[in-house]
């Protein structure tokens, strides 16, 4: 492995995506500010804006750095550099995760400010964490699909499945007794249901990433 080349490829992707990532960051922070100061009337809009900023940051990064790199024929240029296909795969996973986690972690952390005031009951916090992790899982599904299939069609398909799947998943989770019975409380309750769901989400995310890396490492041809 050549860590120096992997780092250079990651920095290259970060540089290309920087203006876009800053705009998604700005959108996410606007949503948080709106949720805090906008009152109930802007609450739903703030939530939609927040989810949109996170989703767009993920989809755009994947399309730009993986799918378009192939369809726009930047890949032969990159692969003419002293790297192997395995190092290229690792640079894409690390670069994409770095970009998305940068947005996801900061916006997620900042969003907890909402719970300082009385806008939402703190009992929502476990469910909110499940929601944030489900966005991360949806992103991981799109990332690994685009890496393995290398196609626009499959990536769009994964985006649709992730979008619908996340909503159905969150609706199902909200119906669980361990979640529904504590969601309106004044304090967060970390029971076995919420911790189990969070653990399962983390496990599936890691499994997806390992699986995609394994498949890509087994490939003989990159072009």
């Amino acid at each position: 492995m050549n860590p120096s080349m992997i780092r250079k490829l990651v920095v290259k992707d970060l540089t290309i995506m920087k203006p876009w990532i800053l705009s998604y960051w700005a959108g996410g922070f606007c949503a948080i500010v709106l949720a805090i100061f906008g009152g109930e009337s802007f609450g739903t809009f703030a939530f939609i804006l927040f989810i949109t900023a996170l989703g767009a940051a993920g989809v755009h990064t994947i399309i730009q750095t993986i799918v378009l790199e192939r369809t726009e024929m930047n890949l032969p240029f990159i692969m003419s550099l002293p790297i192997t296909s395995r190092e290229y795969t690792l640079s894409k996973i690390i670069g994409n995760l770095a970009i998305f986690l940068g947005v996801w972690l900061t916006l997620s952390a900042a969003s907890f400010i909402i719970f300082i005031g009385d806008a939402l009951p703190r009992g929502v916090i476990p469910f909110f964490c499940i929601l944030l992790l489900s966005i991360l899982f949806a992103y991981t599904l799109m990332l690994t699909t685009s890496l393995v299939t290398e196609g626009m069609g499959w990536t769009i398909g994964a985006t649709v499945v992730a979008n619908i799947g996340t909503q159905m998943f969150l609706w199902s989770i909200s119906e669980l007794h361990g979640i529904r019975s504590v969601i309106g409380g004044n304090e967060p309750v970390w029971n076995s249901t919420s911790l189990g769901v969070i653990g399962a989400e983390l496990l599936v995310i890691v499994a997806c990433l390992i699986g995609a890396t394994f498949v890509q490492f087994g490939r003989k041809d990159i072009l």
Partner: peptide
């Protein structure tokens, strides 16, 4: 290939640079 490609220049007709970036960006890279 890593050792070999240090000393090989490859240009293909269907190869493309990053459209959103300048030639200077590619040169620095």
């Amino acid at each position: 290939q890593v050792r070999a490609k240090q000393e090989v220049g490859f240009v293909a007709e269907d190869m493309r640079l990053y459209a959103s970036q300048s030639l200077g960006f590619h040169m620095d890279f």
